[in-house]
Design a protein around this nucleic acid. Structure first.
Lengths: 341, 341
DNA sequence: GTTGACGCAGTAAACGTATACCCAAGTCGT
DNA sequence: ACGACTTGGGTATACGTTTACTGCGTCAAC
């Protein structure tokens, strides 16, 4: 059941059918109606691949994330998909799970399907892989961590704002020994958070010496708290590089009979939806996934639409800010007393 | 950069290039090597839409879920994608968010892209929509809730096994007043869970009178506990139709100063990954998402490969079973005493 | 009444690939 | 040595669209 079939039944040429379907104005309304009638009767849907072939536009956008199972991403994927559909695009979703082989596959799949652009929300893609994409002039949108090259738009994230608020919030609660559970160092975005923490601490004259490295997973958060508990200096608060880590910390705290927030204050980062449903609800730095997805999509769409010669570079930034919930409380004086003796 | 370009540079015909690329055996190794050399040099990747057009096979599988942001699904999506890629398929992911308009869009997108088959993990699709797919003889795999029609394979889920274990576990802990937070009644899968609960209770002579209706969300879980607390009969345990609900219940319990599991035992359903990271870790009925995805994918692939005339129907079943963690404890005698006076 | 302009539908050529068919050259049996 | 296979590469068509071009008819202006 193809265009020709419709044409035959409506007693017009395929060109007319095509024009009618695509609402090209030059077609006689009378004829158009006849065409649409047949189309509806037969339940005809145009073949996208044929369209893509002749038009040179696949109407597919690539979306590369590191792991769909990371609760940070589904919200992004969902928003991205909604927007894509609204704009008559399909999305090709790919997850790298930090596996070089899968990263390569990702890129190949994108190219084979001739995506018109790709948004990259994973980190540690090799330059050589991206070269394939750039060589084909596929518009690329990175969030936060892309190389600084022409034809690549980067969405910058202002980590400092939110983390500074978090640190100052804890300081106001009389916390002085504030630990930080960092993310994996190979992630630029994780490093940036760590830096923001150090900066924020320094600003108010606190020493950020208690920094332990996690891996942005819940298990990592659990391990991190164990490590923290083993440290000499007792801390009264810990801020985590992401919410998953914070959840792990809370979970491990539970095992040790440490009550949140009375014994230990915790601040997360990302504000994944789950954060507000933890017990206690997690105070965290919000980095709106929805907003992020919207910005990324808009940037990508702009880039796809942009004529290749105009090389004016667009700037996008996402602000983070603290969301107060109930995983933080006044530092226990008892702890301070303990240290002072 | 297309096949012809390669052919020109390798001084062979396009047919030979095509054959070389597709590893058709009849091509001279010598020539094949020459072709591959050029292919690698130019970084050529075949155009999938052209392939699809001529071969009549899109190499795309549809996957319809209700909401990607529901933590139940990402694991499934991930597994499904892995398997798809391994088998040289792409997946077209669609979420209906229970919106009739989006459901219709879903189906249209699937058809327009000419998917070779679709797995449906959402509920409440209208018959008329599916008719489009069935009309085109697109293989359909439903999990748990599909219509019983030829050409449709259904993956059945054995809810009773896991729920019975849960109820018996609670009974062994001396719970007699066990509440159930049901899912939305329009979901067949939710109804099936409720039925399984009733059956299990009846089997051991308990009355399942305390049934309150949630909606499979965390907010729904919170509301459910409020409702439960308002009920005359004090319950000592609650089993939830899914983990999200259970998380909501735990969250609300926290607000009321109710300690889990000492004051109240909770059992979830699904065993989403998060369950083990709750505080306390959630005892729940496992319905392996990974296994489910594997079964669904295998079923779909079989169906796609099957010659249309062979109509032998395959049966698939997924067993559920209880995972003991720490959200359940011995019923407080105090409660029993209270009721007895 | 002729001409030019314009509105609209039809014809046909692409898009990039796979493959049925054909044909040349080599191999083997007799 | 000659025909019958076999081997393997080339030619050309088809897949389902879009769209440039063509051409027919109508209408207004002179």
């Amino acid at each position: 059941m193809d265009l020709r079939e419709i044409a035959r039944r409506a007693r017009v040429s395929t060109a007319t059918v095509s024009r009618a379907i695509n609402h090209v104005s030059t077609v006689n309304p009378q004829l158009a109606k006849r065409v649409w009638k047949v189309v509806d009767e037969l339940g005809y849907f145009p073949n996208t691949q044929a369209r893509a072939l002749v038009s040179g536009r696949s109407r597919i956008l690539g979306l590369i994330v590191s792991e769909i199972t990371n609760p940070f991403f589904p919200e992004i994927v969902q928003t991205f998909e909604h927007l894509a559909v609204e704009n008559n695009y399909e999305i090709l979703l790919t997850s790298t799970v930090n596996d070089p082989k899968r990263m390569e596959q990702s890129v190949r799949r994108m190219i084979e399907r001739r995506v018109e652009g790709v948004a990259i929300l994973t980190f540690g893609m090799e330059e050589s892989l991206l070269e394939h994409l750039r060589f084909r002039k596929v518009p690329l949108v990175f969030v936060d961590v892309g190389p600084d090259a022409p034809g690549i738009v980067n969405i910058r994230i202002n980590y400092l704002n939110g983390i500074r608020q978090a640190v100052q919030h804890l300081a106001a609660l009389r916390h002085t020994r504030i630990a930080f559970v960092a993310g994996p160092p190979r992630l630029k975005s994780a490093l940036a958070r760590t830096e923001a923490f150090k900066t924020s601490m320094a600003e108010i004259g606190l020493l950020p010496e208690v920094i332990v490295t996690g891996d942005h997973t819940m298990e990592g958060g659990m391990r991190a708290l164990v490590e923290l508990l083993g440290a000499r200096d007792q801390h009264t608060a810990v801020v985590c590089s992401n919410d998953m880590t914070a959840i792990g910390v809370m979970r491990e705290a539970y095992d040790h009979g440490i009550t949140i927030p009375t014994d230990l204050s915790i601040v997360g980062f990302d504000d994944i939806r789950l954060a507000q449903f933890m017990t206690p609800p997690l105070t965290t730095v919000q980095m709106s996934q929805k907003e992020l997805a919207q910005i990324a999509f808009r940037a990508l769409l702009d880039e796809v639409g942009r004529e290749s010669r105009s090389t004016q570079k667009s700037e996008y930034e996402l602000i983070t800010s603290l969301i107060l919930r109930r995983s933080t409380a006044m530092a226990r004086l008892l702890n301070d007393a303990h240290r002072e003796q």
